[in-house]
């Protein structure tokens, strides 16, 4: 049984890593975005195995369902010039690769450290029957973590204010319809009947 779940874990992890590599190597930005969707799916699978079902479903709903769809729309609409994006890739590769290798070595040292490897051997205890991840999160979110929760709400308010301040503009030259003036319009606003003397042709 344990071996079977281990197998699923390795399956998800392999797909996740492959998709991650795909995101940065895909030549077509749409493919890159789709690889990212795959990466999110595998990640949510791993979360599901950790019994974090709320986070897992939220990841699929929010990131795959909303954020990535929006992202794909933007990618399709902007028609990004790939050659310009790739400019300087080779020039910066040595430095970037150097930093990356350093990071990998450090991370291996950290993961194999005494404390974390002990954690890996013991594993995490399964949650008891009847404990709902969503319910537990909800209980602390509105009590113990109410202050950060409110702050997150304020940040969303900043996002709204900033988005409106930066994008809403009334262009004078744009042609737009104003429904309320259309409804208010009367026949006499549209046609003016002018009485004229009849004229003969010749």
């Amino acid at each position: 049984m344990i071996d079977f779940s281990l197998l699923i874990f390795y399956g998800f992890s392999l797909v996740l890593l492959a998709a991650g590599v795909g995101v940065i190597t895909a030549r077509n930005p749409v493919h890159a975005a789709l690889f990212l969707v795959l990466a999110f799916f595998s990640g949510s699978g791993i979360w599901m195995m950790l019994e974090a079902e709320f986070l897992s479903i939220a990841l699929v709903l929010v990131y795959v369902g909303a954020v990535m769809v929006l992202f794909l729309f933007v990618v399709m609409m902007l028609n990004i010039d790939l050659d310009r994006l790739r400019e300087g890739f080779w020039k910066h590769l040595p430095l970037g690769a150097g930093v990356a290798v350093l990071m990998v070595v450090e991370m291996i040292l950290v993961v194999t450290s005494r404390q974390f490897s002990a954690l890996g051997r013991e594993g995490s205890a399964p949650a008891g029957v009847g404990i709902s991840n969503t319910r537990e999160l909800g209980l602390v979110l509105y009590t113990d973590y109410v202050y950060p929760f409110e702050l997150a709400a304020v940040i969303l308010l900043v996002a709204i204010v900033a988005a409106i301040a930066l994008t809403l503009r009334r262009r004078k030259d744009s042609r737009h319809l104003d429904p309320s003036t259309q409804i208010k319009a009367q026949a006499r606003d549209r046609i003016r009947i002018v009485s004229m003397r009849a004229e003969k042709d010749h």
Binding site: Y145, Y147, P148, L151, A152, I155, V158, V161, A162
Partner: peptide, 24 residues
């Protein structure tokens, strides 16, 4: 708390970012 430090920082950074771009 790490969370409040981070949220305060994001609140500041995002507001600053919008302020810098305000002259659009």
């Amino acid at each position: 708390h790490f969370l409040t430090l981070y949220l305060g920082l994001e609140l500041l950074s995002l507001s600053l970012c919008a302020l810098i771009a305000l002259q659009r």
